[in-house]
Design a protein around this nucleic acid. Structure first.
Length: 715
RNA sequence: GGCGUGGUAGCUCAGCUGGUUAGAGCGUCGGAUUCAUAAUCCGGAGGUCGAGUGUUCAAGUCACUCUCACGCUACCA
């Protein structure tokens, strides 16, 4: 640990197209905040950087749909996300936005540098769809058409939301521009591609061994296994890294700073991570700092850490580093401690299904819940998806709050404050060990040890373990007080030394807790400090605490007058006051309502009207499955032979995840017999077996019944 | 299908380079205690370490096969 190092800590830039839920918070923002607050307590020079990612086609499409401007959308979510983070105590030094001029200049500057350097960007001309009426090229999301895979009539140019296939616009059947509704034409367009493929070798050495330019950059063992694993999986892929297009034909974004590139913008993935840089620049500008010290120094002078969710690993560990290295002047991240995903009561968060809770919703729903910010932070920390997916449950929220914060931490502090007030008029007692450094050190050894383990775990990005160590410290306090039992000593001798000593030690422990808990539960830290009548934990105080514990100096001096007892955490399970429990119960009831509603309806809407003529074009026949076998090297496909009376058909069907081959043999089915044959994985499929599908995607066979023969028509 | 990560007490998780009776917290059961928010403290019960095979004097820890979960990637009616 070098005190002279600069620390640049970033959290993933939220896309300004929606609100963030608890999973985002626990994945990328809360861990970063803990780390940053810790660094500040240690007196380190740190910049905590974030901002809104405001470009990309998704925003323009939504704007179009809702009849508003992209600016309306990004303004709305920029301010919502920014203010929500503030309320939850996420202590960004700067929360910028990529629509700012400074960002546009920064991104263009980097693009130009790469272009001038040569060899990093290459031009390629391809054919893309163009809307003649609107006179513009169409981004993938601006084109809809029939999905070639499932036939869904409103698939987008990049993917079909019905079957989840990844598509390219030219695959769509009957493509339509969402702008004019016309059929677009193919037209040539020029784009720039970043030669990612040229960077594979050094990236591999950097990720695997932590080596950069022949020098040790970081210790790769300190990176999370799933992070290194996924990167190497990419780097070792037999296809290898491919050049990636960095520009698009779009009117929303950062214009490509090249002559004759009108109507072209930087692809959002290229400009978004550069947002970290522009955000730092803006922060430096407003705070009299030199931004380059936070981006352009060697690993001995600067530590860059990206906090992200696992969906962003490849971007932050491969693509962005490659961009920075290609540019040549920027530092690469020292670590990218990506978290996995947080589920919510056993399922993925889903806005459309109403599953989960967004950050601002939580604040609203819990507005009458005292200390709601720390209650949430604590529950999320205790269950952070650090190495595997985890699950947020209200019952655990309650447990963590009551057991840890109220019973353990809160109650310990309360015991100490009450005893100090009733035995010593609220003053830190003059225990003999207060002036005896050796004895002090000996008595407070466990405090020092546990404080060190909190620190150690934070440094290793093990925030769950750090939080557990914090609880151990408060547990130790409870245990110590119980053993010392000043209330018992007082009965026989009111002046017994153990009474003074035990409270002196306990008060030192509370003082240590008030600081050590700050990264996790900052609002509570402040309240404990107030209870002790001490000022807010300020930057650098933790290194003083470490020094004092080492030298045997009190953290809170003899004679210091503390405040009156006050409850820090009112329990949720409280026999006198049900109000907090009611808030929780309301949340649980909401989830049950969602589940009930799902069971009740949840049927896809009726498709657009069709004609009898169209229907009669379909030749549907009754049939019986004769044989079934898995198609090799596929997960979903079964090769079936179906007897339809007049002949036997070979059909490839995507049902292998639902049925084993032997379960299918002998099934009565309906077969669409005049579907154009299509080759799938080398097998020609002559028809399609009709299936019913439920809301969870489960499939069921459809047939005319056991008694029916094969080859009969359906009408 | 390929790749990655994970599968350890009822629940949430620790277990570094293989080495004595596999750990913690919560829950549970029993006891102590009263300064305290039905809080605290002490003690007990509870695990064939996903399944199997192998390497080894010795495997939760290494290798192989299988299985389940999650993700990336390919393919997909």
């Amino acid at each position: 640990m070098d005190k002279n190092k600069k620390y640049l800590i970033t959290s993933a830039l939220p896309y300004a197209n929606g609100a963030l839920h608890l999973g985002h918070l626990s994945g990328a923002y809360l861990p970063a905040d803990i780390y940053v607050r810790y660094l500040r307590l240690q007196g380190r020079d740190v910049a905590f950087i974030c901002g809104s990612d405001e470009h990309g086609a998704a925003i323009t499409i939504r704007a179009k749909k809702e009849g508003i401007s992209p600016k309306d959308i990004i303004d709305k979510y920029h301010s919502l996300n920014k203010s929500t983070f503030e309320k939850l105590g996420i202590s960004f030094d700067y929360y910028h936005r990529t629509s700012e001029k400074l960002h546009h200049e920064t991104a263009q500057g980097i693009f130009k540098k790469l272009l001038e350097k040569g060899g990093e960007l290459e031009e390629k001309t391809t054919e893309q769809y163009y809307d003649e009426e609107f006179k513009q090229f169409l981004a993938d999301r601006y084109i809809t058409g029939e999905c070639p895979k499932c036939g869904h009539s409103e698939a987008y140019g990049d993917q079909c939301e019905k079957c989840g296939s990844t598509l390219s616009p030219t695959e769509l059947v009957n493509p339509k521009s969402t702008l004019s509704g016309n059929t677009p034409i193919l037209k040539k367009t020029k784009h720039w591609y970043f030669r990612l493929d040229k960077h594979a070798d050094w990236l591999r050495d950097w990720i695997k061994n932590g080596m950069l330019d022949g020098k040790q950059h970081h210790d790769s063992k300190t990176w999370k296994k799933h992070v290194v694993g996924q990167c190497l999986s990419w780097l070792n892929d037999k296809e290898g890294l491919q050049p990636r297009s960095v520009t698009r034909d779009l009117d929303w974004g950062i214009s490509v700073p090249v002559e004759g590139a009108d109507g072209k913008v930087l692809y959002v993935w290229f400009d978004a991570p550069i947002g970290y840089i522009s955000s730092t620049r803006q922060w430096a500008l407003e705070n009299g700092k030199n931004w380059e010290e936070y981006w352009k120094q060697g690993p001995d002078k600067l530590e860059l850490v990206h906090f992200i969710g696992k969906d962003n690993i490849v971007f932050h560990c491969i693509i962005f580093p490659a961009m920075l290295k290609a540019h040549g002047e920027y530092a690469l991240p020292m670590n990218v401690p990506a978290n996995q995903f947080l589920n919510f009561e056993g399922r993925k968060f889903s806005k459309s299904k109403g599953w989960g809770i967004e950050q601002h919703e939580y604040l609203e729903e819990f507005k009458d819940f005292p200390n709601k910010e720390d209650a949430l932070r604590w529950a999320l920390i205790r269950n952070m998806p650090e190495n595997r997916d985890s699950d947020f449950k209200w019952d655990e929220f309650v447990d963590h709050y009551d057991k840890d914060l109220a019973d353990n931490l809160g109650n310990f502090i309360n015991r100490v404050v009450v005893l100090t007030n009733s035995y010593f008029e609220g003053k830190v007692p003059a225990a003999a060990i207060a002036d005896d450094e050796a004895a002090f050190i000996e008595k407070l050894k466990p405090v020092k040890k546990l404080a060190n383990s909190v620190i150690d775990e934070i440094e290793k990005f093990n925030f769950r373990a750090a939080a557990a160590a914090l609880m151990e410290l408060s547990s130790w306090g409870n245990q110590y007080l119980q053993d010392a039992a000043p209330w018992a000593a007082r009965k026989s001798d009111p002046d017994a030394e153990i009474i003074k000593e035990s409270l002196f030690v306990s008060l030192q422990t509370v003082a240590a807790l008030s600081i050590l808990c700050e990264p996790f539960i900052p609002f509570t830290s402040l309240r404990i400090r107030q209870l002790l009548n001490l000022p807010k934990a300020k930057n650098g105080i933790l290194e003083l605490v470490e020094a004092k514990l080492k030298l045997g100096k009190p953290l809170i001096p003899v004679g210091h007058k503390i405040g009156k007892p006050a409850i820090l955490f009112a329990k949720i399970h409280d026999r006198k006051d049900k109000s907090r429990l009611e808030i929780i119960e309301r949340q649980k009831a909401k989830l049950e309502a969602v589940l009930a509603a799902e069971k009740a309806n949840e049927r896809p809407p009726i498709k657009p009207e069709t004609t009898f003529d169209d229907f009669t074009k379909l030749d549907i026949r009754t049939g019986t499955v004769l044989t079934a076998e898995a198609v090799p090297k596929t997960k979903k496909l079964l090769k079936l032979t179906v007897d339809i009376g007049i002949e036997t058909r070979t059909v490839v069907s995507g049902i292998a995840e639902h049925f084993k081959p032997e379960e299918v043999v002998g099934k009565k089915v309906l077969l669409l017999a005049n579907l154009a044959p299509r080759k799938l994985r080398g097998v020609v499929s002559q028809g399609m077996v009709l299936m019913a599908e439920d809301a969870e995607g489960k499939l069921g066979f459809v047939s005319a019944g056991e008694a029916w023969g094969n080859g009969l028509t359906v009408r």
